[in-house]
């Protein structure tokens, strides 16, 4: 198929950006979206133009490194990561607009690459269970109710890609944070730090410049791992619990 690609190009954080249009011919439906960009880049290099910078690593949909806004959809029109999106979802003659994740808390680096280290700092603020190596009790000493274990797992599937922020009209990271709060808060091991954790994480989230949540559900719709919206409910509930405990 032949495609028209409108791609955001920006040389660096301070440089002005612009949309650039490329024509790409003979795209196979078997290509992944990123392989399609690889092919475009090879042709750009051959022509002496600098290739388009974009992030990707595992290309199996699990590392969370890739992420593009494809014609207004985070990770494209189907529920998956950009690397697992295949060109058979598109048609001959389509015009596709490719933009980076846009959020104040995801500063631009170059072209389609942004800095998501704010996610790391949210985890640093409290997204962990304090268990020093060697201090762990025997694994079977604390059974976990299956329902809770399953819910913790469902939330733990988050890959930290940032699609929730990209899709949210408020650029809020509540789904990302709610997933971690739910994952750790459902488990007995996570109880001692439960209320301190949610306060610290939300405070860091706000400090990073993410927007607040308006429960639109755009995040859960965009999530490639189908993290449900109710993790945000759990986050809200735990924060209310923290208030009740004087935090």
């Amino acid at each position: 198929m032949n495609l028209t690609l409108n791609i955001w190009r920006q040389d660096g954080p301070e440089a002005p950006g612009r949309m650039v249009t490329y024509q790409l011919a003979d795209v196979s439906g078997d290509m992944s979206f990123l392989e399609m960009l690889d092919v475009l880049n090879e042709s750009l290099i051959t022509k002496g133009e600098e290739p388009i910078a974009f992030d990707s690593d595992c290309r199996e949909g699990i590392c969370g490194m890739c992420g593009l806004m494809i014609s207004g959809n985070a990770h494209g029109p189907v529920t998956t990561t950009t690397c697992q999106l295949h060109m058979r979802e598109f048609h001959d003659g389509d015009s596709i607009t490719i933009e980076p994740w846009r959020a104040d808390a995801f500063p631009m680096i170059k072209d389609l690459v942004v800095d998501r280290s704010s996610f790391d700092r949210i985890i640093q603020a409290g997204g962990f269970i304090s268990a020093n190596t060697g201090s762990a009790p025997e694994a079977h000493s604390v059974p976990v109710e299956k329902r809770k274990a399953d819910r913790a797992f469902e939330a733990a599937a988050c890959i930290g890609c940032g699609a929730c922020v990209a899709a949210c009209p408020n650029a809020s990271a509540m789904l990302f944070m709610g997933a971690k709060v739910t994952h750790l808060g459902e488990l007995p091991q996570g109880q001692p730090e439960r209320y301190a954790r949610v306060v610290k994480m939300v405070a860091q989230h706000d400090h990073e410049g993410f927007g607040g949540c308006t429960n639109t559900g755009a995040c859960a719709d965009a999530c490639p791992k189908e993290i449900p919206l109710d993790v945000i409910n759990t986050l809200n509930r735990d924060l209310r619990g923290a208030l009740g405990r004087g935090r």
Binding site: N6, G17, N73, E99, R102, A103, P169
Partner: peptide, 12 residues
Amino acid sequence: ARPQRYAVKSAA
């Protein structure tokens, strides 16, 4: 939180 808007409006 989003000073730079998307060129294509979010489809969400």
